[in-house]
């Protein structure tokens, strides 16, 4: 620590300025006090008089008059042309802030790895999804879909048993209990494993809407080959859903594609981490 505050050059300058201002004040005040004592005014007095205080009919000092005139001209210019309509606005600052942040976000997380996406997804999930699906993602006792089984064979089985509707695909709702027993389990395994391996004969029931390849016949029904992937989650987030349990709002435009992928990665980690 510097013990002597006068070694700082800003302090030196401030002190010098204070001394100058002090002497200027003394000088100017002294001049005017002396003038008030000795000055004799000249000129013609105006007619009116307030309790003995009169007023001369002197012209305005020319410096004042020109300044006043200049102010009026500047005012006209400012009013008609100079008003800073294109300069600062609160909304403009907001737009710049959002654009800068979006650009930074896009470039920073363009090739985020799965671990990063899961962590990002957890944050988004806790804010946007947890109010209905619960902090653990278990749907809080049937208030929303149980995401801890989503993406696994158990999740597909639950969908086959309970049906599904409200994603807004042209094929409409999928009734409950299209398959049951072993057949349902076999199809659930097959779909949850990415539709690889030998196709169970019972998948024919699903193919009516989802197509033999499960791709949803060009957007008529959900693409089952994407089931259990972040892309499928992103699809649900964009469409929203009015299903048998309740209604889920659409997050279209509220989450960026990277954020949707991140939520998908986190939801998958819920059912597959063990």
């Amino acid at each position: 620590m510097n013990s002597n505050i006068f070694q700082d050059n800003i302090n030196q300058l401030a002190l010098l300025a204070a001394v100058i201002i002090f002497f200027l004040t003394v000088f100017v005040a002294g001049k005017y006090i002396k003038q008030m004592k000795t000055d004799k005014s000249t000129g013609e007095l105006a007619d009116e008089n307030w309790d003995g205080i009169g007023e001369y009919k002197n012209e305005l000092p020319s410096g004042w008059a020109y300044t006043f005139l200049g102010t009026m001209i500047w005012g006209l210019w400012y009013w008609t042309m100079g008003y800073p309509v294109d300069a600062y606005s609160q909304i403009g600052e907001y737009n710049e802030e959002v654009a800068a942040h979006t650009a930074m976000f896009e470039s920073k997380w363009a090739d985020a790895d799965d671990q990063t996406l899961q962590e990002m997804g957890e944050g988004i999930f806790l804010v946007q999804c947890a109010p209905c699906h619960g902090i653990a993602g278990d749907g809080m006792g049937g208030k929303a879909a149980d995401l801890t089984v989503w993406g696994s064979a158990a999740g597909v089985l639950a969908t086959i048993q309970n049906g599904s509707k409200g994603l807004g695909y042209p094929m409409g709702e999928m009734p409950a209990g299209m398959l049951s027993g072993d057949a349902a389990k076999k199809v659930a395994e097959y779909v949850a494993n990415g539709m690889k391996g030998e196709m169970p004969a019972e998948f024919g029931v699903c193919a009516g809407c989802h197509g033999m390849d499960g791709k949803g016949m060009g957007g008529m029904a959900p693409d089952l080959t994407k089931y259990g992937s972040p892309a499928f989650v992103a699809d649900v987030l964009e469409r929203g859903k009015k299903g048998y349990i309740g209604k889920m709002v659409s997050f279209k435009g509220r989450l960026t594609p990277i954020q949707e992928k991140a939520v998908g990665a986190y939801i998958l980690s819920l059912s597959r981490s063990e």
């Binding site: 109010p131 209905c132 809080m140 349990i245 309740g246 209604k247 889920m248 709002v249 509220r254």
Partner: peptide, 21 residues
């Protein structure tokens, strides 16, 4: 209205901690 639904409000007004611990 953009991000909460009828069923959510129903749960929430009945018992807020059931959906927001």
């Amino acid at each position: 209205g953009e991000y909460r639904t009828t069923d959510w409000h129903e749960n929430h007004m009945w018992e807020p901690t059931s959906v927001v611990p």
